[in-house]
Design a protein around this nucleic acid. Structure first.
Lengths: 356, 356
DNA sequence: CTGTTAGCGCCTTCAT
DNA sequence: ATGAAGGCGCTAACAG
């Protein structure tokens, strides 16, 4: 692990470091022969330019920071379903970044709050993608003054900050419409998420609009409310079973709740979707594995991550326009929990079953 | 976003840049009064040291690289269950790193293979944590020559490279023993993962040992084999239903397969666990949401990520000892798919059900 | 305790 | 087309 610098390469190739630098950056103005020799030397030595020095000299980090909430931290607004997808978001962001020659650095906000992350990665990135809930709004604003920032999935778009979000309202509208339209259910309720969560609100809005469009009575607020977690779903199930009249269909605020709902409903002998239809939101992996497969709304997490990065890159390359708000479309995924009959994979007849 | 350097802070505080530097690094040897003034200036200016310059000067990036396979890339050994957890791994790694003052940079390997990532982040990290399957072994070896590398979840520990893995064998042993011991099942089969996957093999080994310990016949290879994916699980279900005699219990190579198995078995009217018990491996979130809740083996993904980082940090701080192989314990999670009766949450009697 | 002075490794004018 | 030389912002000896 000896130090290997551009000087070494230059010496090996018998040229000046300038030429090496030029070749490495693919800049023109280097004789083909020389270029070959440099390349050969680089390969022979296994030389990789020092990103630090390179960045310092060009005053460009080549790195984008990704800030997301610390899941284990009880003080953060956790339970937010977005968290479940940070993996996908990260991948989407990473890919978009790499295409543009950027790396992605990640940081989870800690208890201490947003001030920390400034120190943690503030000095080593060109820009930041901040997941909603990871940093308090005032802190974000402060951050945004010194660094380009794109907010992901925040509700009310912070003033003056670029913003990317999934079309929660449209998605909720779509499922609800499917329920009342395609299936003709009239008694449909919404199992909401945390009152504070922007996504949860947007979904409820979509739900109401769909109801209104169908000429059905529009509730002022969710019939029941969970917290986007499995526990929330169970609690909601309890509420429904205990007090409410059983509705014909339930639009759950997210898949986790929907799944828990289905589980608890089924456990007490209520058939889903025959007696009660249930839909989710997010399209988590197991939504299609459970029985019945969950009809839900797909969130393009990867694309969300990617869009954040491209937006950020635009800013980095000098885009000075007014703050943008990008809405990434969601998609209705019809499976069976709504009452539809999806084509099931052919079942092979059972061959031999010994024991019982 | 004007440039703000240490000089500005020094001027504002009426001291030399050295003092500012010392204060910022928490080094001793600065008069309390001066220290205060510096801190005040820093805060007033909102100064954040440039990580690039800092790194260059101290020849320490303060960054750890995390390499994992690109999921969408068909050429990578995907379907590997570890991938499902990269999120958890990342979080574990990030936290451990942050505690030590390091940031984490991530990169997914692309089709092009491992050579790329060297350029991508090679020059900007102090060390690398490489998830198995993301880079071909020879490339890893090459990498490890220039940078400290820790391998995560690789099978045969590459020669001379630090290595961290979950106790797959022990976990498989534990579930299997539970099945044959606690439940007394004798006809137990193993639904394997990809033949090449090291984890899959280790789990099979544990399975066999448990069988041997119980005095049962030990198969040479998995009765059926999937690929760790949901599709794999379905395929396995097909095989079992079609050709094999139905066993009393199935130890699936991972949760995804187990879940798909349960779904397909149930779909054709086979009761789980009454007729066939099924167990998984990994303990993914929904393992406990499905019905019946899945008995499985918990993989401490977060801890795996953290251990990789701490191991790496040891190396970075000069540990020159022989390569280490850390095995992180797994844990049996008994739920219901094995035939156990977990305490179910109390069911509230149904209040009012209108429509049917 | 404090300030001065070299670099860290590379990019980038600027001459040649 | 090519090389020489001056920073980029900071840390780390080194003198005071």
């Amino acid at each position: 692990m000896e130090r290997l610098t551009i000087y070494e390469v230059a010496r090996r190739a018998g040229v000046s470091i300038s030429s090496v630098s030029r070749v490495l950056q693919g800049k023109p103005g280097v004789a083909p022969a020389k270029r070959e020799r440099v390349l050969a030397a680089v390969k022979a030595l296994g030389y990789v330019p020092n990103g630090l020095a390179r960045g310092l000299a060009s005053s460009r980090h080549g790195v984008i920071g990704l800030i997301f909430p610390d899941l284990d931290d009880p003080s953060t607004e956790s339970g937010h379903e977005t968290l479940l997808y940070s993996d996908e978001i990260i991948r989407g962001a990473e890919r978009a970044a790499r295409v543009a020659g950027y790396a992605v650095i990640i940081a989870a906000t800690h208890v201490s709050g947003g001030r920390d992350i400034a120190r943690a990665i503030g000095g080593r990135v060109d820009g930041l993608v901040v997941l909603a809930g990871s940093i308090a709004e005032p802190d974000i604003a402060a951050l945004a003054e010194r660094t380009p920032v794109v907010l992901l999935a925040a509700g009310r778009r912070a003033r003056g900050i670029d913003h990317v979000a999934a079309d929660n309202e449209g998605g909720a509208y779509a499922v609800t419409e499917h329920l009342v339209g395609a299936h003709g259910y009239r008694d449909v309720i919404f199992a909401g998420g945390p009152a504070a969560a922007p996504d949860a609100r947007a979904r409820f809005v979509g739900f109401r609009k769909a109801l209104a469009a169908a000429g059905l009575p529009v509730p002022d607020r969710p019939a029941v409310r969970g917290d986007f977690s499995e526990a929330g779903g169970r609690r909601v199930a309890g509420q429904i079973l205990r007090g409410l009249a059983l509705p014909r269909a339930i639009v759950a605020g997210n898949d986790q709740m929907a799944l828990a709902l289905v589980a608890d409903l089924t456990a007490v002998g209520i058939a889903v979707p025959r007696e009660v239809a249930v839909t989710g939101f997010d399209d988590i992996q197991l939504a299609r594995l459970v029985s019945p497969p969950l009809t839900t709304v797909h969130q393009p997490m990867r694309e969300l991550g990617a869009r954040c990065v491209t937006l950020l890159l635009d800013r980095l390359s000098g885009d000075e326009g007014p703050p943008r708000a990008v809405v990434v479309p969601t998609a209705l995924v019809v499976r069976e929990s709504c009452g539809c009959r999806a084509p099931r994979p052919a079942r092979v007849p059972i061959a031999g079953r010994q024991q019982t």
